[in-house]
Amino acid sequence: MIPEELKKSLQQRVATAVTAREAAVDVMKELQSHYGWLTDEAVGEAAEILGLSTLQVDELATFYEMIYRRPVGKKVIHVCDSISCWCAGFERIMEHLRKKLGVVEGQTTADGMFTVIPCCCMGICGDSPAMTVGGNFYGSVTPEKLDEILEKERKN
């Protein structure tokens, strides 16, 4: 169940959109940030707010890279695996993450803190290899820097 305020603000967003569907991605993203991922319950709530069926919401949700339809950890680590980051050695970063966190791509750490997901180009090619942790950007990542980042992100 989402708080009444959130529901109101989402209904407001839908009411001011040209069509309800135009607001669909916004609604899904808001619900995702509330639940951590887009749960089945959230899909149902999105459907209700948007006047769509759950299937119609899922048709959209499953298309987008940054909508999670499976449980994720508290913070998602996205490691860019596209060409500029490849040039800059993202594979080393990934390898380091696997070792350090004991997970492979797609998995969540045992403590439920991090989920590691490779992603496409984030437009930080000038600062590659790049990654985000819980939405915060990090560029020119090295294995050493990575340790610090994880430390910091674990704390706040």
Partner: peptide, 9 residues
């Protein structure tokens, strides 16, 4: 119908 469709990409 609204209960059948295509998911994923």
């Amino acid at each position: 119908g609204t209960d059948f469709g295509v998911m994923g990409s």
